[in-house]
Design a binder for these strands. Structure first.
Lengths: 277, 277
DNA sequence: TATTGACCTTCACGTCGCGTCAACCGCGAG
DNA sequence: CTCGCGGTTGACGCGACGTGAAGGTCAATA
């Protein structure tokens, strides 16, 4: 029989922790003095505690450890639990690895630039979306602006107002030529929203493919100053060793009036992939 | 100006999270209606939020993020913070890696054995310790037992009672021969305890070197049944791909009376190292 | 004997980043 | 006029304990 302090020193486990394990029923002392409340542990409980600590090291939550040590599950059950744990551990490992890579990217960036550029660039997955869109090759930026208005008018005839999503512009051109802008203009449709498609119309309904990794930055200046934003993305890509992996998209998170483009809130999205995968 | 719901959908951040960030002062809405309490966010705050999210992804705690976005620290300060973060992330990564390896060891073990042997074996670091000891080569187990008593008597003459540590027996023999037991018998000394060493005595005061990785199991049976315990360790080593890396130690966590060896609580410690490091 | 100092007890709060109710209120639509 | 939606505040929960505070016991020492 050991008092908690001795048991604690022997097992190299804090007395507080032992009291906690008692409280949650994970390791109850063999005896307790009914007057003083003192806990008394046996030597056999040392082995029991060690089993608990081993399971904890494997990453099981205490509650599950309690079930394991009480129910004494079969080898195959235990194997199944370990396989689940391995999954979790692998995901945690991948997450830590990714985080470390991010940090090192930022360090390199700051050592190269003298500042942390691309501070506003975040990477996330983009789900598939249904869009009602038309694609044009346009000779000028002004024409593109006009096409936005045109698209808006067309779409409003097909979709009940209020069920209309956000404007998205997709840049399809391989290389940028300001007098041959190959772009797709559309509006997203929420799930379950059904559009009456005009068969002779120019609009097509299609599914925008999901993108697992998308570099995103928000532009709140005028569209003419979009280069500030794309420059951010470019620096981010250079520093993190990624490259573009498809046509970029601009989501107009808030659609401004036609003559108030400076009120636009535009999310610029660039599909990316790691170089040399 | 966006209401919290719109801002939440735009930024892909839960409204609850936004309220929380407001509460802790990390991202206060640009305006708040004094009557309804409604929060209103501007488009510029979207960029601010994204910066916060980027820093969060790097693993900074919210409190530190708050300082960073408010104080706008210099590039070199930021670099220093990132270096610290990298340290943490590297340690977390190493921990996750080790954990995954442990899990896979156990899975292999269970698939080979049909059970999880070595369940009681834990691995930990052992610090340096001062011991007062003598080393003998003994012809029998009984002689060793007698030597324990002899050592105890000798040590008690040198050390104030109450400042005496635990009995430790170190097995020095390269290979086990039951009629030539090369062992060291000693007692640990707590820090700050000073022993009066008898110059003509057999006891020597020395420092037991620290061991970074020590496989530990607790034996509560009779010393004659120690093989049950060592077998556990052996199976553990085989399954986890480790090998012995020095003389083993037995710590008598509770020193029994000489004739009550079955009351002993002995921690068997085996220094280990990874095969092919 | 009185007093340490070392232990022990229970109770309760802090950690971190939110998720999840619960109760309540204001606003626009049918 | 009522319904539902979207907003508010507030409180509790998680996981695995750490860290006190307030008060009782124990053994040893002055």
């Amino acid at each position: 029989m050991f008092k908690i302090g001795d048991f604690s020193r022997i097992a190299r486990v804090s007395a507080r922790q032992l009291r906690f394990y008692d409280e949650i029923g994970l390791l109850k002392p063999a005896q307790a003095d009914p007057f003083t409340g003192y806990r008394f542990y046996t030597a056999a409980q040392l082995a029991q505690l060690n089993r608990i600590l081993v399971l904890k090291e494997l990453g099981f939550p205490l509650e599950e450890i309690g079930r394991i040590v009480n129910d004494n599950p079969s080898a195959s059950d235990l194997r199944a639990m370990l396989l689940l744990r391995r999954n979790d551990a692998e995901r945690a490992l991948a997450a830590e690895t990714a985080r470390l890579r991010l940090i090192e990217t930022r360090i390199r960036q700051i050592e190269g630039d003298g500042q942390m550029s691309g501070e506003d660039v975040i990477v996330r997955a983009e789900p598939a979306r249904r869009v009602l869109s038309l694609r044009r090759v346009l000779p000028s930026f002004a024409a593109a602006l006009a096409t936005v208005g045109e698209t808006h008018a067309l779409v409003r005839r097909c979709v009940p107002s209020g069920e209309l999503g956000t404007l998205v512009v997709i840049a399809h051109a391989q290389e940028f030529e300001s007098d041959r802008l190959d772009a797709e203009f559309g509006f997203t449709l929420p799930d379950g929203c059904r559009a009456k498609l005009d068969p002779k119309g120019e609009l097509t309904l299609r599914e925008l493919e999901p993108v697992p990794r998308m570099a995103v930055a928000v532009r709140i200046e005028l569209p003419e100053e979009a280069h500030l934003c794309t420059a951010q993305i470019g620096r981010y890509l250079a520093a993190s060793g990624e490259e573009l992996a498809g046509p970029s998209r601009e989501y107009f998170l808030r659609l401004p009036a036609a003559d108030r483009m400076q009120d636009a809130v535009v999310e610029m999205q660039f599909p990316i992939r790691r170089i040399e995968p």
